[in-house]
């Protein structure tokens, strides 16, 4: 069976698969598939699951936060903000949920630290502006 080259790009890096038999994804109009030798095409992918089969018959699943897809010269390039790859659909969703929860927690922690820095800065500015504390600062 004929194969094509697949490149998945996101903000963290790239995953490359040199021999892919078929790729299935979805855009606003619905689900579609790509085989080797397809006519050149461009599509805007929607949020959700894409899947592809490699030359050994193994299916890979990728959760994608939208993105663009380009197929030309037997080479498929998918550019997304973030994608998560997995071989099992069930575990992919669990991994994705865990990763998202971790990201949410990191963001919340960063926000809390930022707020703390802001408060600390304001406190110090208040101290500087307060004439009563001039002596203590000197």
């Amino acid at each position: 069976m004929k194969t094509f080259y697949l490149e998945l790009l996101d903000s963290r890096g790239a995953d490359r698969f040199p021999a892919v038999r078929q790729f299935v994804a979805a855009d606003a109009s619905g689900s579609f598939g790509i085989l080797a030798g397809h006519e050149p095409m461009v599509a805007v992918l929607r949020y959700g699951l894409a899947r592809f089969e490699d030359d050994s018959g193994q299916w890979h699943y990728a959760a994608m936060s939208g993105g663009t897809l380009r197929f030309a010269g037997n080479r498929l390039t998918v550019a997304t903000v973030q994608h998560f790859l997995g071989l099992e659909r069930g575990t992919l969703l669990q991994q994705l949920s865990a990763e998202m929860a971790r990201t949410e927690s990191d963001i919340a922690r960063a926000r809390a630290t930022l707020t703390e820095i802001e408060h600390s800065l304001l406190r110090h500015l208040g101290d500087l502006m307060d004439p009563a504390s001039e002596g203590s600062l000197a």
Partner: peptide, 16 residues
């Protein structure tokens, strides 16, 4: 966006 991704992926997996 993160919640949207998890929800859409879950829906697609169920459909499949």
């Amino acid at each position: 966006d993160r919640q949207k991704l998890v929800e859409a992926t879950g829906r697609d997996i169920k459909r499949l």
